[in-house]
Design a protein around this nucleic acid. Sequence first.
DNA 1: TTCTCTATAGAACACTGTTCTCTAATTGTG
DNA 2: CACAATTAGAGAACAGTGTTCTATAGAGAA
Lengths: 198, 198
Amino acid sequence: MAGVRQGARTRTASVAVTASLIDAALELLEEAGLSALTVRAVATRAGVAPMGVYSRFGNKDGLLEALFVHGFQTLQMAIETPSDASPLQRLSIGCLGYRQFAIEHPQQYHLMFEQMMLLDLTPESREAAKRSFTILVDRVREAMNSGDLNNGDSTEVAQEVWSAMHGAVSLEIAGVHFAQDRAANYTAMINALIKGLG
Amino acid sequence: MAGVRQGARTRTASVAVTASLIDAALELLEEAGLSALTVRAVATRAGVAPMGVYSRFGNKDGLLEALFVHGFQTLQMAIETPSDASPLQRLSIGCLGYRQFAIEHPQQYHLMFEQMMLLDLTPESREAAKRSFTILVDRVREAMNSGDLNNGDSTEVAQEVWSAMHGAVSLEIAGVHFAQDRAANYTAMINALIKGLG
DNA sequence: TTCTCTATAGAACACTGTTCTCTAATTGTG
DNA sequence: CACAATTAGAGAACAGTGTTCTATAGAGAA
């Protein structure tokens, strides 16, 4: 049972290189934008040859998919909330965390949702994205159980909240947002939606 | 006053070719997606040489910007509403028209909001986009005047509605929408938001 | 018709993602 | 410790992209 073929395949190194490539890609993305994210540039920054990207991620899309998963893992942490708060508070805090992540990592956020459209992601990657959504569903269900929100299908309601959040931060990131105070407008929208739901 | 230099510049053709290029680009976009939208492919489909794109639009980004403006002109028509309906009805109808446009032209919708992030559009192009938003502001203001919505800053409220609409259709187009009936979920979200606002 | 000018076709260039080949280093084994 | 087998990786090479250049064909004016 002891590493039948595991020992034969995995050499030693590499695991650090994979992380280096992802880090290099994230840095390039935030510093110089999506167009600067070339295989050669990422590999050079990580200190390896372009071939390193292909041996680890298959192709450029594989690297982008890794960034996609990484992004949703970070997002997941950003919308996590302390469990001692009230259900409605937790929902609100999660919504604010969502926006904060997007504003702090605009290029990464953009890439994450861009890829859903252009790449065909593996089921595993889609599952990573859905885990973030599941957190939101939990918050909604808790708020329903506590009576703060009308009872109903928590997935449906969570989807409505997610749509609103995503639209607001997307337009904000894209620079086509006509509110005076974008943070305030975001909060007002979430509050109005929750009020209308409950 | 009669065409001082106009006659000297504009030869004869060209104006039809510009439209052909835009049409060809839109066809390719919906048929084969963004990656198929190459300068060579567009030019070939329009029956001209690649150089035709550059003489008319400057470069590929110029062509994309033309598609952007074209898209918002179409969107503008899609959210227009009959003036004999009630203010709240007009707002609802406009919201449904917004989604319908996005679902009917997903690639085009995606491109429009993609470009805001990646290209630096001319002020004229941004103005074309804002005209669509202005229609929404008008609907909100009317609903406020009629008492269907709480009085407030119509731009702020319209922005909240736009954010919600954009988020919902974006996620729907991207294929990461977990509602059973997406049209119903969209309507429910809009209704909840309007209810919470008014 | 003839001349001028301009739009455009086609080749050429730089850069992209990707593949291929060969080398050098690492790993498990005698 | 030394050796053979394997494999990761460097660098060149290829197809396709956006873009530019140059020469030509064809339209408008005289």
